[in-house]
């Protein structure tokens, strides 16, 4: 796609989470995933950008960012899983649901989605132990009362680790 030349992670994500999108735009979501796989430090940069969008006060922007995150978990392989599986990123999700941080200002829809994602990853990625630690801490704190039902099509099937292409 010629017009995609020169797109950066940030520009893909801005398009994929644009609050004026009427519905999720898979062209941009997949464009963001592909760009992560192309860049050497793609996963590290991507999780920082995603955390910022997930904290958006605009519900639709945050919801789209969570959809992008879920798509990346399915399409960007182990390199991306490793970044999500660090407390540095998990803390950004915890902030969304905790009343001590942003929880009181975030919509139930966004909080529910964050908890669904965390729980689905504890099942799909048992080797990422920090995800389990974070989720169980939320349970101990009473922020998560019971495990959410996970839709069947949300089952995360990890893809083989992508090889970063040399520039």
């Amino acid at each position: 796609m010629a017009e995609a030349e020169g797109e950066s992670l940030e520009s893909w994500l801005n398009k994929a989470t644009n609050p004026s999108n009427r519905q999720e735009d898979w062209e941009y979501i997949i464009g963001f995933c592909d760009q992560i796989n192309k860049e050497l430090e793609g996963p590290q940069i991507a999780v920082r950008l995603l955390a910022h969008k997930i904290h958006s006060p605009q519900e639709w922007e945050a919801v789209q960012a969570l959809m992008v995150l879920e798509a990346c978990m399915k399409n960007c392989g182990r390199r991306f899983h490793n970044e999500v599986g660090k407390f540095r990123f998990l803390n950004e999700l915890i902030k969304v649901v905790s009343p001590k941080y942003l929880g009181d200002r975030v919509s139930e829809k966004v909080k529910t989605k964050v908890i669904e994602l965390l729980y689905s990853w504890t099942l799909a990625l048992p080797e990422e132990s920090k995800i389990k630690d974070a989720y169980h801490m939320l349970k101990r704190q009473g922020i998560v009362h019971s495990d959410p039902p996970i839709p069947m099509d949300w089952t995360l099937i990890p893809s083989p680790p992508p090889r970063p292409k040399n520039p």
Partner: peptide, 15 residues
């Protein structure tokens, strides 16, 4: 070494 120190610095948010 870099990875080890990153691991040491990676903490769960205080609640």
């Amino acid at each position: 070494l870099g990875e080890e120190s990153e691991e040491r610095d990676d903490h769960l948010l205080p609640m």
